[in-house]
Write a protein that binds this DNA or RNA. Structure first.
Length: 256
DNA sequence: CCCCAGGCACAGC
DNA sequence: GCTGTGCATGGG
């Protein structure tokens, strides 16, 4: 496949993006889709080796058409924080997964830790992959101990199945309109919406702000309020804000 | 017992 | 509009 320099599959797949919750680690550079059968690994020369029939999807998921070097160079110019982050995480790629899958993952993610999110999302898979909205409606989810998030998931599935709520339609909207539309879903606030926009729709101008990114923005840039954070990200990084966010998330979790 | 985790809904200003 | 509080669950 594509010869990509400085591509770290493990770093990418374990970086808290959607694949962290929907792929199983087989080896450090070898992953398998939960309930799906697709596999992906990185060879000796950093060449991507997707299993048969997954070639095209893997390109999309790992966003291989991004000029990552160029983007990282651009967003770190004159920015010491991102310079150090890029130096440390140069093998990190942004990912793009299925919108529904991403919605499920980040509905579950709220006020929760990554290990438990993984466990729960894994339990939300059937033989063919993650539960469809209909399967969510019909399943008994109580053994998964979702807590108050179970109702969010059920009601979201219901809106999609019975009330014509359409994720594909929302994906066609601009950032602001799409964000507002997603927030009509129960359990979807600004942060979860931004994760769906970035990791599920591929809108790279989205800037999800969780507790870690919030810490990063305060510590590195002296910015506190949600509104200021969004404005800063938009004016500083624009269409590449999502890339900056992923770097800041990793940096904050390590340092702060 | 406490606090925290890739937050949100809701109430009260 | 912004700010505080309760929330299921599990881990440290």
């Amino acid at each position: 496949m594509v010869a990509t320099t400085r591509f770290d599959l493990e770093l990418t797949m374990d970086s808290g993006q959607t694949p962290t919750f929907t792929w199983m680690k087989i080896g450090s550079q070898h992953y398998k889709k939960i309930g799906g059968g697709h596999e992906i690994r990185l060879g000796e020369n950093k060449e991507l080796q997707p299993s048969k029939g997954f070639e095209k999807q893997s390109r999309e998921m790992l966003r291989l058409d991004d000029d990552l070097q160029g983007i990282y160079k651009k967003i770190s110019r004159g920015n010491k924080v991102l310079q150090s982050a890029v130096a440390e995480y140069s093998g990190l790629r942004l990912t793009k997964s299925d919108a529904w899958e991403t919605t499920v993952c980040f509905l579950v993610s709220q006020n929760n830790n990554i290990a438990r999110i993984k466990k729960i999302v894994s339990g939300l898979h059937g033989k063919t992959g993650i539960f469809s909205p209909l399967e969510i409606l019909e399943a008994d989810l109580t053994p998964l101990k979702l807590g108050y998030r179970e109702e969010y998931l059920k009601k979201t599935a219901e809106l999609i199945c019975e009330n014509g709520f359409s994720l594909p339609k929302i994906s066609k909207l601009g950032l602001i309109d799409a964000r507002e539309a997603l927030m009509e879903l129960p359990g979807v606030g600004p942060k979860v919406a931004d994760c769906i926009l970035l990791y599920g729709f591929g809108k790279t101008n989205a800037f999800p702000t969780d507790v870690w990114v919030k810490k990063a923005m305060q510590e590195y840039y002296g910015i506190k309020s949600e509104k200021q954070i969004q404005e800063f990200a938009e004016s500083t990084w624009g269409e590449n804000a999502g890339f900056a966010q992923q770097l800041l998330f990793l940096k904050a979790r390590k340092e702060l």
